[in-house]
């Protein structure tokens, strides 16, 4: 409960802090999302990608 009210008063109450938090998390989210999408693609296509044939040489 205390945590919730702290969180609300610290961030969500003011639009400025809300937007700031959103922008900061976008920065991290972008990296994680791109990396996870890439890792899905890699795991699905293991052995077929250019990186795989480059390693053989």
């Amino acid at each position: 409960m205390a945590l919730n009210s702290t969180l609300y008063n610290a961030i969500f109450k003011r639009t400025s802090t809300f937007v700031l938090l959103a922008m900061a998390s976008t920065f991290f989210f972008e990296r994680t999302f791109d990396l996870s999408a890439e890792s899905i693609f890699r795991s699905v296509n293991q052995g077929k990608l250019y990186e795989d044939i480059k390693k053989e040489e």
């Binding site: 899905i40 693609f41 699905v44 296509n45 077929k48 990608l49 250019y50 795989d52 044939i53």
Partner: peptide, 16 residues
């Protein structure tokens, strides 16, 4: 084809 799925890449060794 090994690339005919929705998220299946081309087989690059086959391309080579």
């Amino acid at each position: 084809w090994s690339h005919s799925g929705l998220i299946n890449s081309l087989d690059h060794s086959s391309v080579r």
